[in-house]
Design a protein around this nucleic acid. Structure first.
Lengths: 266, 266
DNA sequence: CGGAGTGTTGACCCCGTTCAAATTTGGTGG
DNA sequence: CCACCAAATTTGAACGGGGTCAACACTCCG
């Protein structure tokens, strides 16, 4: 499942961002303009670059316009854990808490383009923001980050390898869909199996076998950097033990509902 | 390793809070007074109560004055994951992000007393806070929560059972120390092994065996709800592969430094 | 054409789970 | 103080998920 040949990150990177933002709240003309303006000048990072170092003051957030980014932690003996992924449209290094510092470093997994978003931060911190909808979207995205971290804990702590990988793929699917990067149930996955393994706490070898398992069970298909969801219902039920037999609304569901909410988007 | 007979939560619960807060920044007279005032009326929750339900708007944060609280997530099939713990002095349900909702529910693990802290929240959200030091402490505590979530991911994702338990105990130790709840390297641990297992993603049985292992290796001692750190250096090196052979300051350390920082407090 | 990075496979083994049955602890009421 | 009960800890045995190590295949690229 190779490398940087993701499908075209959508001809115009700005489209993905606009699509993503609008998925959370429809943007008024003026705010869409403002966003487009911010996306005017992009900085490019090569794959494997540290975009924001751990400990840095988070006063220069970015909008990821194209490419994949993650946060990572490393144990002194070299073991590495990927904490969270960022896709086109996500805010990288954004925190509405004043004086916040990066708790872990942000690293580009592929070549990626970022727009400076200090204005977004300033706007979001104001009491009467100039761009209320953008402010709301920023807060929503921030909340999503927390939800993902909690999901990541549950995934690594309480799910089997098979479930973890299914869940992660669904997360990718649901999020990429919002930015219009999913077509016909398939999306580009520009990550090595090693990276995936580091995200869900598995060995590379077992990640490989687990993916094969998912393929053989006809839940997904993979071909040269593209993943296709073959059986979404089965994947959903695998990932969260959700499905027809589940009663939503109970405490049972908890954060899994948030997940479903994401996945349910058009 | 039984139950609710933690050592006296410090005769006066407010002491623990004041000690904890002061550990992050010395409180000016006026702000100490304000904090004390907030701690005037306490609400008591019995063990096992839901203090804040998932999805609730976080507009009524609390200061935990005594007892232990956690955040949990549950998979539909019943598997449960504990996400984070809260001790006396911690803010429960505090988010400086406007409109934030609880991503998971807060549950009391023991009988616990909470003070309403809406004033703290309002103060922290103001541009020129009335109580600048308290505002700073709130933000610091919020940052600590994020750091702990990331540590939890690393722990569950990349550490062995033995390391996980050692790391968790060190986290308890370091944090409780700040509120003066550690004496002679020992502290009350009012949790069942089942709860501990749910935090680090192990089965109850294996949690039991891992604790025995730590005991036999003379890293900790346990007697009736009290844990004593016998060999801190060994525990530290176990938990983060830290120790003499480690070069701090490198990317290597990352969030482990934050951990150390906590643990290093007087 | 060679080499590096990635994906794949096989063999072996150990960490941690599961199931079941003690045993201990703590609390309760007589 | 003792009898009793539920909850918690502990132990044993058997199993299996996932790790580790090592070799091999494939692709991409210079």
């Amino acid at each position: 499942m190779p490398t940087n040949k993701s499908r075209p990150t959508s001809a115009n990177p700005r489209l993905a961002v606009l699509s993503y933002f609008s998925a959370f709240a429809p943007l008024p003309q003026a705010e869409a303009e403002a966003l487009r303006a911010m996306l005017g000048r992009l900085t490019t990072f090569a794959a494997g670059n540290e975009i924001i170092a751990a400990g840095t003051l988070l006063d220069a957030p970015k909008i990821l316009a194209s490419g994949w980014v993650c946060r990572t932690a490393r144990l002194p003996d070299g073991r590495r854990q990927i904490l969270d992924f960022y896709f086109p449209g996500d805010l990288v290094g954004f925190s509405s808490r004043r004086g916040a510092e990066a708790a872990a470093s942000y690293i580009s997994l592929t070549r990626s383009d970022c727009a400076q978003a200090e204005e977004l931060l300033r706007n979001a911190q104001e009491d009467q923001p100039h761009w209320p909808v953008l402010a709301h979207i920023c807060r929503t995205l921030e909340q999503q980050v927390e939800i993902r971290l909690l999901q990541q804990i549950v995934r690594n702590g309480r799910q089997t390898a098979y479930e973890r990988v299914g869940h992660l793929i669904l997360e990718f699917y649901g999020r990429l869909q919002l930015s219009g990067l999913v077509q016909d149930n398939s999306f580009g996955l520009p990550l090595t199996q090693e990276i995936l393994a580091e995200a869900v706490g598995l060995s590379t070898v077992h990640m490989n076998r687990t993916i094969q398992h998912l393929r053989k069970a006809k839940l997904i298909r993979t071909e040269g950097g593209t993943v296709t969801i073959q059986d979404k219902a089965a994947l959903l039920s695998l990932a969260g033990r959700l499905g027809p037999q589940n009663q939503p609304g109970t405490l049972q569901s908890e954060i899994w509902e948030a997940q479903t909410a994401l996945t349910r988007q058009p």
